[in-house]
Simulated assay, not measured.
Amino acid sequence: MRRPLIGIALVAVMGIVVWQWPGSDAVASAGAPRAAIASQPVANHGNWLATPTADGKLTMVAGGQLVIDAELRRLFDFLLTDSAEKPIRQIKDNARKVLAERLAPGAANVAYTLFERYIAYRDALGNVKPAADATPARLADVVGRRNALRRQFFSEEEANGLFGEEERYDRFTLDRMAIEADVSKSAADKRAALEALENALPPALRQARREPVTHLVEADKAAELRAKGASDEDLFRWRSQEFGAAAASRLGELDREQAAWEARLDRFAAERNRIQADASLSAERKQQAILALQNSQFTTQEQLRLDAALALRARQ
């Protein structure tokens, strides 16, 4: 339950497009050929309307033994979010403090040594060169080298805990690409093979694959229902059936917030147009009046999205 609302980003990685989670060990490769490799930590997947949190949830088993999983890696990435601005010594000291606060002494020591190795691994990852093209074979080579690098810094058990779900999804995606590129298969054979491959995924991974586009499906369906005259109550009933009552309530609140924002844009645009049409004002006075209007109606953060919102309206 830790994913930001509609917060999955597409980034270019090693010549690969990934569904990136915050702080993932993706290596940027702008302009490289792209395919679809996922990097989504299933331990953190859940309702796509979930409230975001900053870091991972650490787990210990009986005896205070640390559970090494994607949540621990999430915390490591969170601790490294501002690594470009802070000295590495300060980052490590902060990590030691955070881990000591959350874990028993023995587990905290284990986690800290893993964190130090994770830093070294992230540094070394920059030497894994992008694939020259997006063929399954070349991408498999890059992914293989990355996975091998992980095992230079972590034991097999540690690597499986930190990266296992991502690596399983990478294998699925490479297999999927290979099926699609197989010229010896008919379209029907490919569909059957892809369906079998999809069905072989663990349920959590299948859900993670669907979630990135769920909000698009919901938005299209909601727009369709509204165009047919659906009321807020009608939408709530449909959303409750599809996503549950809690999600339906959150979506309804988002609708209200968006409607309020659109109304404010309407008022601002109308008043700005009135100022621009006022022949008694000089160009300088018009600019001053519009700026004063903007400052009076929108916060500093809202003004960052104001121009884009108005430009989008003009194109519609």
Rank of each mutant, 00 (worst) to 15 (best):
M1W: 05
R2M: 03
P4T: 08
G7Q: 11
A9L: 10
G15N: 08
G15H: 08
V18R: 14
Q20R: 09
W21L: 01
P22F: 04
S24T: 03
S29Y: 02
P41H: 02
G46M: 04
A50F: 08
D55S: 13
T59Q: 12
A62S: 14
A62E: 15
G63H: 06
G63C: 05
G64S: 08
L66N: 06
F78E: 08
T81H: 11
A84K: 12
E85R: 13
E101W: 04
R102A: 13
L103V: 09
A104W: 00
A104T: 14
L114F: 04
Y118E: 05
V128R: 05
K129G: 00
D133F: 02
D141P: 02
R150V: 02
Q152C: 04
F153H: 14
N160R: 11
E167S: 02
R176M: 13
R176W: 07
I179G: 01
A181I: 00
A187Y: 04
A188E: 15
A192S: 11
E195H: 10
P202S: 09
R206F: 01
R206N: 03
Q207P: 02
Q207Y: 14
L225H: 09
S231K: 06
W238Y: 12
F243A: 03
A246N: 10
A247H: 08
A248L: 07
A259Q: 15
D266P: 02
D266E: 11
Q276H: 07
A279Q: 08
A292W: 00
A292V: 02
A292E: 07
S296T: 08
T299C: 00
R305M: 06
A308Q: 14
A308Y: 01
A308P: 01
A309D: 15
